[in-house]
Design a protein around this nucleic acid. Structure first.
Length: 580
RNA sequence: UGGGGUGUCGCCAAGUGGUAAGGCACAAGGUUUUGAUCCUUGCAUGCGUUGGUUCGAAUCCAGCCACCCCAGCCA
């Protein structure tokens, strides 16, 4: 996906269900009513390119883009790339790709905080000149000691009273590369006794002689998040700066920086410079992060799982990353609907995985064509059918949506059914095939099991059944056959490998502080590979869909990464609900 | 124990002084050639807790309790 050229392309990431009110929508409606930003709503999604996006980011993406779209507003994509140490172009590319896949289009070109390095530098000079910032010689360790603690005030840096001219000179020399990493820093002059630690003369610039993925070696001083974010928002004309709860304590600093810069200079530096809109400073609003039970959403741990090969990569289908969910068979619409159903609030909560599962089942049930696949084949020989029999059965691709068309399924003398659909001694309530019992073959005939063939070890190897020729498309005479099972022609079916996925962790909260190492609660059975599956031939045809409901089993999608000519691999996205 | 937040059904969540929306989950019925889907019904005299104000409180006030975040030159 390349950068968007249009300035006003509406986002098409729509949601099926009705939207409900939340405090951010209410706040925006209120601002609109007061005409605070001249009717504008302009948000931004500001990831740091230091990892892949996950389901938690999806919540923020959906929030920012939909809230803008609902109000005919705009949403920027801005990479918050102020710490080159952990960032890379690989992540930039993956993030852009994920957002597009989710169905959103950002306003104009992709932005980078690093686009504003020169302006940011100029604003820093402005703060120094007005006595609001100074160059500090304290080392990181010393600064920590001077900062005080949660309950004790800090001490002023010895350089706090440094003359403006001297700080100006030093800052210029920091930029020129005269000092080693950590030798000094630029700090805001606020209040070392503030109960809010963020206000105890926070660092604005630090020295890092390191290459940046966007600016190369142009800079050796890099602005911090706190200093950069608010000014970047102001430059882009953001009206509502939405972020997560842990930044709440940073809001006073966000406001301090903007209010201690000249409003005119911010206005002139901004995208709104030549517009007719009044220039109003952006406002930060915080909401709770999305957490899901049985899963980890923490970049550090996700990266660790990738690096230590607990999973196969960022796009492993068990990962909560957008890349992983996509490969698993989740649709963008399902993720959008899920985010909408979860809502946005300020209380920290852990959403039940069942909600995500519901969202994907809901979408796939409506939109995926049906097919038949037998995961654990057991041969059934139809004794009253000729050995060379080949019949073509016509089946609907979707039970409720005729528009999805129909398909042909070959029926032969030897077929396979799933081993779990036969029981010699059935448990109470069992509705499938039993010795001597009858069952309906989905889309075909009713069969009766006459004979159970076993090997020397007593394992069932084959079933001999007779079919009732008068039951194709009609109910059997004089009796009721309750069960329906699926089947595939043994000779005409196509072999495939199927990957069965389950949750990665076997505890509800693998990120809990009680758990020292997440490796201790890994689900051993999170991936099961089935090598002998066999499916109806239509799924392998040229132009076939890539995502199906394998009837009575669940939703499966072709794994594009592992499938190749002559070797089909399918991933189980999610099982069907099962009340049996 | 300084500061900032949050507490409404098992899980999310609406509600902003007029008598507890919705979704998920769960349960019971019905339809069904997928034990799926779909349909119907049920599911908080109760809103962390204790007091107070009021004709009336989840909503206002006070106290208490629990949990989360903050002492990176990370974001």
């Amino acid at each position: 996906m390349t950068d968007q050229k249009s300035d006003s392309t509406p986002n098409d990431g729509s949601v099926d269900s009705n939207t409900s009110s939340n405090f951010i929508r209410n706040k925006i409606a209120h601002n609109l009513k007061e005409n605070k930003h001249g009717g504008r709503v302009h948000t931004r999604f500001p990831p740091e390119p230091n990892g892949y996006l996950h389901i938690g980011h999806a919540k923020s993406i959906c929030l920012n883009f939909t809230v803008a779209a609902e109000n005919s507003g705009l949403c920027n994509l801005r990479f918050d790339d102020t710490n080159p140490e952990k960032e890379s172009q690989e992540y930039v590319d993956a993030i852009k790709d994920n957002i597009s896949w989710l169905g959103f289009q950002w306003n104009g070109q992709v932005r980078y905080s690093s686009n504003y390095f020169e302006q940011l530098y100029g604003f820093a000079v402005q703060l120094i000149e007005s006595g609001k910032a100074y160059v500090c010689d304290l080392s990181a360790d010393e600064a920590r000691e001077y900062r005080g603690t949660l309950t004790e005030a800090g001490k002023n840096s010895p350089n706090r009273g440094r003359a403006v001219a001297e700080s100006l000179d030093l800052f210029q020399r920091m930029r020129a590369g005269e000092f080693a990493d950590g030798a000094c820093s630029l700090r805001a002059k606020i209040d070392m006794a503030s109960p809010n630690m963020n206000m105890r003369d926070p660092v604005l610039y630090r020295i890092r002689h390191i290459e940046h993925h966007q600016t190369g070696t142009e800079w050796c001083i890099y602005p911090t998040y706190d200093y950069t974010h608010c000014i970047s928002d102001a430059i882009e004309g953001i009206t509502h700066s939405l972020c997560t709860l842990e930044f709440e304590d940073h809001r006073p600093l966000y406001d301090w920086i903007l209010h201690n810069l000249s409003l005119d200079s911010l206005h002139h530096a901004s995208d709104l410079d030549k517009s007719d809109y009044d220039y109003v400073l952006p406002e930060q609003t915080e909401f709770a992060k999305l957490k899901l039970n049985y899963t980890i959403v923490g970049k550090r741990k996700l990266k660790e799982m990738v690096d230590t090969h607990v999973v196969d990569g960022w796009d492993d289908p068990r990962m909560p990353t957008l890349a992983g969910l996509r490969r698993r068979g989740f649709t963008a619409a399902a993720i959008r609907n899920f985010c909408e159903s979860v809502g946005v609030a300020r209380s920290e909560s852990i959403v039940d995985l069942g909600m995500l599962e519901h969202a994907i089942r809901d979408d796939l049930d409506k939109n995926s064509p049906r097919a038949i696949c037998v995961l654990d084949p057991l041969v059934v020989v139809l004794t009253n059918v000729p050995a060379d029999h080949l019949e073509t059965l016509d089946m609907a691709n979707h039970p409720k949506n005729e528009e999805m068309g129909r398909r042909s399924v070959p029926f032969t003398q030897r077929i396979v059914i799933d081993r779990s659909d036969f029981e010699e001694v059935p448990p109470p309530g069992f509705k499938r095939l039993t010795a001597g019992g009858e069952v309906r073959l989905r889309g075909a005939y009713v069969i009766k099991c006459d004979d159970v063939v076993k090997d020397d070890a007593g394992k069932v190897v084959e079933l001999h059944c007779s079919i009732d020729l008068d039951t194709l498309g009609k109910k059997p005479e004089g009796r009721k056959v309750k069960g329906v099972i699926h089947w595939v022609s043994e000779s005409r079916g196509v072999p495939l490998q199927v990957h069965l996925y389950d949750r990665l962790f076997n505890v509800e909260n693998p990120e809990s502080k009680d758990i020292e190492d997440f490796r201790d609660c890994l689900n051993e059975n999170s991936l099961i590979r089935l090598d002998n599956c066999i499916a109806e031939p239509s799924i392998a045809e040229h132009g076939a869909a890539t995502s199906f409901q394998f009837e009575r089993e669940g939703y499966y999608c072709r794994d594009e990464k592992e499938s190749r000519e002559g070797k089909l691999v399918f991933n189980r996205t999610i099982t069907l609900r099962d009340s049996w």
